[in-house]
Write a protein that binds this DNA or RNA. Structure first.
Lengths: 239, 239
DNA sequence: CGCCACCTTGAGTTTACTCAAGTTTTGTGG
DNA sequence: CCACAAAACTTGAGTAAACTCAAGGTGGCG
């Protein structure tokens, strides 16, 4: 047994113990047994479409992607946001159930599906990734089914602040210390709206409201400085 | 390799090939190697609460269950409906992220988590179950994020009609033949509302509207006769 | 037969949506 | 580096869908 703590799928060599999935990223790009193909995407490139044949898995090494589904009349729902360390390309059937599109420049590690299914180690890793994604989906289901626009946007902003708002919420770090953070949205207002089940105008209005209330400062459209993390957290509906 | 086609987790004996997950149910109750514990629940019994220690997996042998999450102010979102052949009790962390409650009388097969993690066969089966649940969650995300009340209720009704409305939609079976089906809801209006992200009044009004339009007949509150499956299907937003 | 839980319906309200400008930002070419 | 165009974002006014609150109806079971 190798004792090193590996955190990326691309680092797995069939012997390393599992140690999480998008939980921390201490390793350089994968250089294990899977020296295989890397793939680069520009923002808004589509990696695969809903209905495409599912033959490969991908690990996001750098950048942000989204999975979305379309209704025939053009309504779109973004069902998942993928960040560094996340995997995509799973499918139960022969075909993908979602479209995968890059939100930023992206670098991917590519795996052939059979590489996975022949390695119990990788099976196990994929399993943990699926469970992690499932929990995220459950949370997002609550957001879409039961939260107000203000709660949705606040929850979204909190999801961009590591170690806050969730199970492992550390609270304001220390009395007197500034409780702030600048986050990169990596998404347009329309993409945020399609993720949160709102319209672009509603997202814009909520952001303006948070700005007026002095909880955030919009720096570059794509970059928001949260001036009071705890204040935003109180608006998520989870406290 | 055993060549028989097994369709339930509880039938797996470590050698049978995977053959789906809640896709068809031809086998009697599981009697494979896992002769282990069975558990019965009455309607509205809670199997486990969000936050409970996750130590066992369960397979639904009979009946219907739901997974739900609560917000601190009491708002509830049902995140998944589990039917015969479905598995529950997965967790990435040490604790469950949802509460599991029986909607009807339920019979479960119980598995200790370590039984699963030591069998590659079971690992693989669990994997397929997770992927199947993930696709269902993606569909439900679209429903919650982008569909109207009428579309949500119609989609819910269609989900109770096997082989219709989804990927393998066969369409109206034959010209002239009646396109009808009686479905058991197995849920109160409140539970349906909490699943569809609506209020009980809205669910009730939509059902009344479908009744008025002659698409369904309500037989026993819990039992709905769909008199025009294709008509309901047209209202799901997916055609 | 009557109670209790569940369901339905109505009236009024609220939230988020639609439509329509107007503004800001970003990217491109001179 | 500036001017311009295109894309993205914001804001306002009016509307519509679903919500809340309240009352009344229905059905199942002792």
């Amino acid at each position: 047994m190798v004792s090193a703590t590996l955190t990326k799928f691309s680092d797995l060599d069939g012997q390393a113990p599992f140690n999480g999935c998008q939980e921390n990223f201490k390793q350089p790009d994968g250089i294990g047994k899977n020296t295989g193909r890397k793939q680069r995407l520009s923002a808004h490139d589509v990696l695969f479409y809903e209905g495409d044949k599912a033959e490969r898995l991908y690990e996001v090494l750098r950048g942000v992607m989204m999975l979305y589904k379309l209704l025939p009349d053009g309504r779109r729902q973004v069902v998942y946001i993928l960040r560094e360390g996340d995997m995509l390309g799973f499918s139960n059937r022969e075909f993908f159930d979602c479209t995968a599109e890059a939100l930023t420049e992206v670098e991917l590690q590519v795996f052939e599906s059979r590489e996975i299914s022949t390695s119990p180690m990788m099976q196990h890793y994929v399993n943990r990734c699926l469970l992690s994604q499932m929990e995220t989906l459950h949370e997002h289901t609550v957001l879409l089914g039961r939260k107000s626009a203000l709660e949705r946007v606040s929850t979204f902003l909190m999801s961009l602040v590591p170690n806050r708002g969730g199970h492992g919420c550390s609270g304001p770090i220390e009395e007197g210390k500034p409780d702030t953070k600048t986050v990169a949205l990596s998404m347009t207002r329309q993409e945020i709206a399609d993720y949160l089940g709102l319209t672009i105008e509603t997202v814009s209005r909520v952001i303006s409201q948070l700005k007026r209330r002095g909880l955030i400062k919009v720096e570059k459209q794509d970059s928001i400085h949260i001036t009071n993390i705890c204040g935003i957290c109180q608006l998520t509906g989870m406290h």
